[in-house]
Design a protein around this nucleic acid. Sequence first.
DNA 1: CTGACCATGTAACCCGTTACATGATTCT
DNA 2: AGAATCATGTAACGGGTTACATGGTCAG
Lengths: 197, 197
Amino acid sequence: MSVRRLCLAMLSEGDATGYEIRKEATSGCFSYFEDASYGSIYPALAKLEKEGLVTMREEKQPGKPARKVYSITQTGRDALLDMLREDLPPDIYRSPFLLVAMSAEQVGGKAIRRAIDLQIEQTRHKLQQLSELKSRITDKPLNRGILWGINYGIDCMIQKIGYLEANRAELEAIADGDGNGSQPQAAAPVQTPQAAE
Amino acid sequence: MSVRRLCLAMLSEGDATGYEIRKEATSGCFSYFEDASYGSIYPALAKLEKEGLVTMREEKQPGKPARKVYSITQTGRDALLDMLREDLPPDIYRSPFLLVAMSAEQVGGKAIRRAIDLQIEQTRHKLQQLSELKSRITDKPLNRGILWGINYGIDCMIQKIGYLEANRAELEAIADGDGNGSQPQAAAPVQTPQAAE
DNA sequence: CTGACCATGTAACCCGTTACATGATTCT
DNA sequence: AGAATCATGTAACGGGTTACATGGTCAG
């Protein structure tokens, strides 16, 4: 049900081909919290068309396979709204990195350093993607909800990077097997103003 | 491969039954970034035993089905280390909530408010779980890597709640369809010191 | 007595990924 | 020349969830 939802949501912002939807999902506005491969998108679009939630027109281009441009229908819009208003499965976060971090003592300093480096690098990469996207759409007459979402993602990633940089030393010490007990117990958060609750 | 890894990681902290592993995955230390159901755990444990990565002993209890307590073997420990050191698929975040948020204009204020409330509530709930867990293990001779991971999760959730509370008004305004152009463009982050990069 | 918790397991199903199949065009 | 981008699609496979099957204990 998730790829369906994603396709409808994207088409509600404008017509697109399966190829374009995949690109958006992988590196566009939605890439922070969604992803999908061709193998799921193409069948989903075909089914949505069969059900009348989207329509398709073929744009022939010499040499290349014809582009199949999909448009959402009113029925599709209604169905999307229903999905968005009714069922909201909770967010999901899966982190192999944290599993490694929690096993720091066993894994050792070298692997931990590599894992942290990778983690920061990946986060930086996504952050940059989103930042570019943002600068490209800011002040255009584009959907302001999307801008809000992008800002949310950017904030999360900045915070994440900051936390990792501020606290990596402690984790590395654990991984290196320092016998001491002088850990900065609360793991001194990057910043701690009032922050909720 | 993920449930295998999870089972081994948990067993490396101490013996456990399938039931206990599931509980930990759902509401324990690992629950912030992992999850698994019986339907995947029991078969995984059986297979791990067949492969010699864990051993099992049955503890009979009158009336109840015998507890099957699993222990990790040295081979299992080695295999776990290999997994943790070598392959590290990137973290995954999936957020139906953000899809709704990005569709704010279509979805409308009422639904947005509900979605935000739910999101905050769920995050608060998880935060409380982790906080309790933390206070229960702090200063015990327990794995300090795990404590680090818990602190990481706690920080992320506090920050998330703070961001949602600070910026919900803006999203609600978008959803309510205010025609104005006086948005707090940068969506005033809860705090913005230097923060990385 | 009802619901939550303990405790195990299987089978059907779902949703998605990976790999394959095909092929032109444009950038380096 | 080789890689990347455009462009569609299918089939095999995988990993997990949900629902089912079973049943005792304990607290409210």
